[in-house]
Each structure stands twice: as structure tokens, then as C-alpha cells.
Design a binder for these strands. Structure first.
Lengths: 334, 334
DNA sequence: TTGTAGGCGTTATCAT
DNA sequence: ATGATAACGCCTACAA
């Protein structure tokens, strides 16, 4: 292991002060062409890397964004986040920002985030749906770090980017009733009291009532494959078999569909199923899933764009709350 | 935003030196009970968080592990990693270590990792299968950071934890031939030249030759759902329809199965399909996927255990290369 | 058990 | 265009 090379090493060899080296790194436009080239060559030769900790301690920037998610028992990165993260990452990279995903599943994990916030190792945060405990959010906001919420409109006073849960759910249930002739419906709902859960559930209830269709009930379950399986079992056990099911999420729908078919039900012949999210996987199930499409990737992209704008210009966008439209994607499950 | 509180703030209020505060944080056993309580209370009251950057700069530890992965076009965290990461995270948490996932998909992303390495923001690295460019690995190893490789035995001189690709693949293909009576086989292989690809492919070739069964060919594709779809299309286009397919990975198998069924083939009736990995998803497809099980979660757990042992005791485990057994899980696709 | 001094590597600020 | 100096917040080493 060769000896450590610091900014001083470079400065000495180049015959300049370390400030000049620092400038080469951070404000090359303030350095003369000749020294710039010389210093850069030496940096290259010695494989010098500035220490980010010394840098942040001294007040420098790191151009790093944080993404707050919450893992499930099945997925370190639950599928719902996937495309949002993918979209966000794409834009971040384009803008020269790096990113870290912070899983907020427990205190150990959270301490990493708080460490990084206080060290200024992250400059801005995107808080995804699913992370919404009041106390945790409060702790984060108290640090004063710049923040954008994605997926849920849970705070009036901060930027949020969400999608039109109500209309999406409405369209799905109406499709089941009007186009597929369903008469006995069930909604598999989430377990949380976050807006997305509530709004989709409410829309379901409204539509069912509107059209005078029978509501066999609402089954609550966690948004996992296994959650879907359990919900399906419960439905089967109860004995009141619906001809249509509207699920809170695709991942639930996939689990439920699997279990239902396992028990000999044919989909969509016996039971029609509609999901919500339109995750990538939904195109590859058998039958492919009919679902409410959210443009999750675009939401991620916009979130990053907004965040970077706030960071670079230190101003807020005029519109605090953006709501993306949704639309039904009809495949084979309903 | 309240004024920033540093170790000095606490020290002054507590009427002690900042070293005592530092000790309270890092070596509480060296501090008298009374001061300990007093200082802790003040820390709590003011919500003081030590700055991790100042800490690492001064030589402190952060107890953070890094997980090196590579995203795909479809997944920010490809399913293959999922359970390994889940297992690794579990143990890390138990041991009081935090973790960061580093996606090494491009230079911007990589720069984050190198920043963190040089700042000592990560103490040890787990390098997963899929990250294996010579130059990149070399760069990482040159930094001198402690490392464990998981999924591939790509380096003789470092710790690796991998699974028995050869036997797994052999068992899968033999099952297809011996138990399911397949006579015309195809292997959908990966595109990389990493050991797992090579070994599975080689085993396929050997078994096919051994039993004098017809090898319709090897189709290469990327390990994504879409890759599986493309491979299936190619097979269909070529016109030589196999009665059995052995896939490099489950994710490929799921994509291929989907496309094949799309084209009217019945699985397993017309074509039998076997995957590799046994990712969670494989239990939920229709039909559920027959596949070679790797104990990915356990590999992740052991990797972390090993890494922490190396970090804490500064010694290497006696056995440098661990190979986990695999076994065939028979479900419905073959 | 506690305190003092010094340094970790970088950047901001003010000079020149 | 470049340099000197101080400061960032914490920890190690040594001293009391």
C-alpha cells in the first residue's frame, strides 16, 4: 500500500500552494491554463482522491442526493419503488449528482441517514411513499435539509409529487363493472392509513355504491406477494367468491392471482383482477395484469429535477403539489 | 433552524472538556457514572449528533459496510441480489453495522464509492456477482479496503463465497432428460464471461453429450425479463422448437416462459423450463418455476459475518473460498 | 477519571 | 492568478 497522498503532496510536487490544487478541483476556471494542466497531470499520476470528509467538514459540496425507501420482508427494494428510483437516478446522473438509497426500516439504518445529513454527505432528500411516520419525518425536516416527497401528498407545507389515486381507482372499478360486467366485488386494500390507501379505498366504495353493485367486502393485507396470497386465502375461506377484485397494488394482485389460480379459479374467466401501479413485472405474469398505470418513472425524474433546482437556485418551485394523471392499462387479467 | 450544536456546546454546558464528551460517545466505560449521565442528558436535550465527517477525518470509525451491485435497465436492484442483500442486511444489523448499496453502473456512481472509501465512510465491501470488471476491481482493491466477494469465485487471492454452479446445472439438465424425458434441449445462457455463466454452460454441454440428447443450441441473452423474451423469440423464429430449456437465471426463465406461452406453447406440456437462482418471484409465476436453488440469503449472511470478523479482528478466515451446495426445486414448469 | 495539545485534509476568506 | 491563514468538529496521544 503506497503512502497516502493528500492535497499537500500534490501541491508540493507541483510547486504550488494547496489552494491552487483545491481550485483546480473545484473552480478550474480560476486557474491559469498552464498550472491547470500541470496539476491535473500530477493528480492523475499519483491517483490522488480528495477526501470527501475533509471536504464537507471544510464546507465543500458533494453533489449527492438521498432516496428514502423502506424495505419489506420480501424485497430490499420493493418493486413499487423500482421505476421511480430508475427514473430519478437517470436524471440525477445527467445532472452530475450521485445518489444513495437509505432504507429506513429500523434505527440502525436510520442512524446512517442522520449521520450523513449532519455530515452534509447528502444535500437533498427524496422521500418516497411508504416512509411517513410523523416522528421520523419530523426528525428529518428538523435538520433543515431540502426535501421532496414522492408518491404521497402527506405534507401541505412541502413539495409533493403524487398521482391521481382517486381517478385511477375509480376507472379501475368502473371498468370491472361496466365493461366486464362484474356484480360481486372485493377490494384488497393496504394496511396503512396513508393517503394512497385511503383514496383508493374510498373510490372503490363510492363506485360500488354508485352502480349498485354488491360489495363483498374489503380485505386488508400488506403490500407483498405473500400479502396477496393471504388475502386470497381469506377470500376463499370466507366462501363469498367475487367475480372481480380490485387490488391496492400490483404486487398484491400478483400474489392473489397466483393463489386463486392455485385453487383452481380461472383468471379472468372466473374472477377478474385489477392491480395498481403498473410495475414492470405486471407485463410478464400469466395472465398479464390489467392495472392502473402511474407514471412512476416520470415522478422520480421530476422529483430530482425539482430537488436539484431547489438546491442550486435556493428557491422553491411555484407549484408545491404536483399530481400526475393515471390511466387503466387493459391486459388479460380483467 | 436552531444554531448548530457541536461537541464544544455540550462540553461547555456540561462543564467538562470536549474530550469527556467524546469519551461518553465512544468509550463510555472510561467515564464516571455521574458525568456520563449528566453529559448524556445534555446530548439528548440538545439533540446533538456528532458529525461523521469530522469523526472519520480524526480517525474514528463509522461501522458501515458497502454492498456493490450493478443495476439493470429493468431493475435498480436486480432480483438476483435481493435475497442476498436481505440476508446480508439482517446480519449487519444484528452486529450493529450499517450498510450502503453502491450501484456501479457508471462513473458518476462509482465516484461515490471511491469518495466514501477514501473518506473512510465505509469500512468494508461486499462485492456481488455481476461486478467484475478487472480495472474497477483493481481500483477498489488498490485502496486497501477489506473485501469479500459473493456469487463468483473470480479472485484466488481474496475471500470468495459462491455456489456450486456446475452441480446445480448438471442436476437441472439431467432432470430434464432423465425424469422428464426431454430429447431436444436448448440452453439460454448469459452474455458475460463470468464463471457462473461459463460453468453452467459447460455443465449443460457435458450432460447433453453424456446422454446423447440433441442440443438445439445455446442462445445468449442478458439476464433480464426482456432478455428472456428475446431469447424465446429467437428460438421460435429459428423454428427448431425444443421440449426442454435450461436457463441461466430465473429472471430469464420467467421472461422466456411468458413469451413462449404468449405464442401458444403450453408449459410444461409442450416445453419444460428450468431456471437458476430460485428468486422469490419464481414461486409466484404461473406455472411456478422449477429451478436450481442457491442459498443466496445464507451466502449474504456469511459474507457479512466474514467481513466483520476481518474488520474487528484484523485476521482472515482460514478458508478462503467457500462453495455453497445447490439443489433442484421441482415446481410446475418442468 | 479528566484535561491539554495537536492534527486529520480540505476549503473560505482575505490578501497580494 | 495565486498564496497565507484560519477554521470545520472530532479523536488520538499524552499528561495530570
Amino acid at each position: 500500500m503506497r503512502k497516502k497522498v493528500t492535497i499537500d503532496t500534490i501541491a508540493k510536487i507541483a510547486g504550488v500552494s494547496k489552494m491552487t490544487v483545491s481550485r483546480v478541483l473545484n473552480h478550474p476556471e480560476l486557474v491559469s491554463k498552464r498550472t491547470l494542466i500541470k496539476v491535473r497531470r500530477i493528480i492523475e499520476e499519483l491517483g490522488y482522491h480528495p477526501r470527501a470528509d475533509a471536504r464537507t467538514l471544510a464546507g465543500g459540496r458533494v453533489k449527492t442526493l438521498g432516496f428514502l425507501i423502506k424495505s419489506s420482508s420480501e424485497f430490499a427494494l420493493p418493486p413499487f419503488y423500482n421505476e421511480c428510483v430508475l427514473g430519478a437516478f437517470k436524471i440525477a446522473k445527467e445532472k452530475g449528482y450521485r445518489f444513495i438509497m437509505y432504507d429506513l426500516i429500523d434505527e440502525t439504518s436510520i442512524s446512517l441517514l442522520t449521520d450523513h445529513i449532519h455530515s452534509h454527505f447528502v444535500e437533498g432528500l427524496i422521500i418516497f411513499e411508504g416512509v411517513y411516520e410523523e416522528t421520523l419525518i419530523k426528525r428529518i425536516l428538523d435538520s433543515g435539509i431540502t426535501v421532496v416527497f414522492v408518491g404521497e401528498k402527506i405534507r401541505d407545507d412541502f413539495i409533493t409529487i403524487s398521482s391521481d389515486n382517486k381517478n385511477g381507482a375509480r376507472e379501475a372499478v368502473e371498468y370491472l363493472i361496466l365493461k366486464r360486467g362484474c356484480k360481486r366485488l372485493i377490494h384488497i386494500a393496504g394496511t396503512d392509513d396513508k393517503p394512497s390507501c385511503l383514496e383508493r379505498e374510498m373510490a372503490y366504495l363510492e363506485v360500488v355504491e354508485n352502480y349498485g353493485v354488491e360489495n363483498l367486502g374489503i380485505v386488508r393485507t400488506s403490500s407483498t406477494l405473500e400479502g396477496g396470497v393471504k388475502a386470497a386465502r381469506e377470500i376463499i375461506k370466507n366462501g363469498a367468491i367475487p367475480d372481480g377484485i380490485f387490488c391496492f397494488s400490483d404486487i398484491i394482485a400478483i400474489g392473489a392471482m397466483h393463489e386463486l389460480m392455485n385453487h383452481g379459479f380461472s383468471i379472468p374467466k372466473d374472477i377478474k383482477i385489477v392491480g395498481f401501479d403498473d410495475i414492470i413485472l405486471s407485463r410478464y405474469t400469466t395472465p398479464p395484469l390489467t392495472t392502473v398505470h402511474q407514471d412512476i418513472a416520470k415522478m422520480g425524474e421530476l422529483a430530482v429535477l425539482t430537488l436539484i433546482q431547489m438546491l442550486d437556485n435556493k428557491n422553491e418551485p411555484r407549484q408545491k403539489h404536483i399530481v400526475f394523471p393515471t390511466h387503466l392499462v387493459i391486459r388479460k387479467s380483467a
